[in-house]
């Protein structure tokens, strides 16, 4: 295996240590956006170097630099949406936590609920065909006076079920 960053991103944690003292000295005197403000946006982004790990939790050097960009842009007064759009323009749609809602991507959003509704429909149709006319009132329990204590009914039902087992 090649010692590539993408395959073993954790190696890069090492670089964090080495480079920590250096970056963002210039922005230090500005009203620097807090780590929390940066993380709030980073949380919603995914860096291709760190697949499936949100940017705020990824420790690779690339991700540290990305968070630096967020910080810089925030300091310049960019809004959250502008920053997200900047990342999309730079690195493609995959930086977003979800596919953008357009074109083929609608399929991602439509299929699960559509499949579920189809399931509901099939089950409903099934219920209708399986439903037997021998209605609810055929059960012996129903003939029991309504004033009977619920507990007694529970026992009889329990017993009945146990017999059926």
């Amino acid at each position: 295996m090649r010692p590539f960053e993408r395959q073993s991103p954790i190696i890069f944690l090492g670089i964090i240590l080495l480079s920590l003292g250096l970056p963002h000295v210039a922005t230090a005197q500005d009203p620097t956006p807090s780590d929390d403000e940066v993380n709030a946006i980073a949380k919603q982004l995914y860096c291709p170097v760190c697949e499936n790990v949100p940017l705020d939790a990824c420790g690779t050097q690339a991700c540290i630099q990305w968070r630096g960009i967020i910080r810089d842009k925030l300091a310049e007064g960019w809004t959250e949406d502008e920053i997200k759009q900047y990342f999309v323009d730079q690195y493609g749609d995959r930086v977003l936590a979800e596919p953008p809602r357009r074109g083929l991507n609608w399929l991602a959003y439509i299929v699960p609920p559509a499949a579920f509704l189809a399931g509901v429909y099939l089950l409903y149709k099934g219920f209708q065909t399986w439903k037997t006319p021998s209605a609810d009132h055929a059960s012996p329990q129903e003939s029991v006076s309504k004033t009977t204590a619920a507990d007694d009914k529970y026992i009889s039902r329990l017993e009945e079920e146990l017999r059926n087992r």
Partner: peptide, 18 residues
């Protein structure tokens, strides 16, 4: 879906927690 998207449009997408 990301597999389908990449095959169909060449566009990589992330389907994440949200």
């Amino acid at each position: 879906f990301p597999l389908i998207s990449e095959l169909a449009t060449g566009q990589k997408v992330t389907v994440g927690p949200p």
